[in-house]
């Protein structure tokens, strides 16, 4: 467990070194959600109806915001290259890093959704379901955004490219999460769909790190 602990401790130190990085996606989410009533209408019934979908899309984009930085710094200072020599599979190290990233950066972001939910006049029991869908689905989103970051590591013009490349792959997550929320609004059972969402997250957590490892290895072998 020593190696795993070292990766987690390192991530924690990095987060603590620049706590502002955690606030940036939250800020983004707040600003985007605040613009909606201004652009649409302050009518609370309308806002409550489309609110969950808006929060979902805004959270999605907020997660994608730090896609590029996810692996870039570690790649440039050589940490990722070192991990390839560690006595653990490279993909495993990356999975730990993604999990830590999710825990330290994405979960705080999700925890402010009740606040923006109330701003959009969404009912409390729907907010709870929304929160759970986000918690269950964001591991998959983190994995995909990591893959986007890893694929564009060696790219020269990559600013929004990774986002554009990855967004279509998010479709199943968005559809399932929206299904769960619609059912919760109608008062129907959400268990089976939530299970599907969790299954997607687990499958992504299992396989995407392998693809990320392959994508990072390309850059380690080639460009140096």
């Amino acid at each position: 467990m020593d190696i795993e602990r070292r990766i987690i401790a390192r991530e924690w130190r990095l987060v603590m070194a620049r706590p502002g990085d955690i606030l940036k996606p939250m800020w983004f989410l707040l600003v985007v959600i605040s613009l909606i009533p201004l652009a649409l209408s302050p009518e609370s019934s309308l806002l409550a109806e489309i609110g969950p979908a808006l929060i979902w899309v805004a959270t999605l984009l907020a997660i994608l915001l730090n896609m590029e930085s996810l692996f870039k710094d570690d790649f440039i200072d050589g940490v990722l290259e070192q991990w390839t020599f560690w006595p653990r599979p490279f993909a495993w190290c990356l999975a730990i890093k993604l999990l830590t990233h999710w825990l330290f950066q994405i979960v705080p972001l999700i925890l402010i959704t009740p606040v923006v939910g109330l701003m959009l006049a969404i009912e409390v029991h729907v907010i709870v379901v929304l929160l759970v869908t986000l918690l269950v689905a964001t591991p998959a989103l983190t994995c995909f955004s990591g893959l986007g970051g890893a694929l564009t590591l060696g790219a020269t013009r990559s600013s929004v490219l990774g986002v554009l490349v990855m967004l279509p792959l998010f479709v199943p997550v968005v559809i399932l999460a929206a299904g769960v929320i619609t059912r919760a609004t109608d008062g129907a059972a959400v268990g089976p769909l939530m299970a599907l969402l969790a299954a997607f997250s687990l499958a992504a957590g299992l396989f995407i790190p392998i693809a990320i490892a392959a994508a990072i290895r390309l850059n380690i072998g080639g460009s140096t």
């Binding site: 790219a155 020269t156 013009r157 990559s158 490219l161 490349v165 990855m166 460009s223």
Partner: peptide, 12 residues
């Protein structure tokens, strides 16, 4: 489009 775009972003 993603695949076409990804290719165009690399020099190598």
């Amino acid at each position: 489009l993603g695949i076409i775009g990804l290719r165009s972003a690399f020099i190598d």
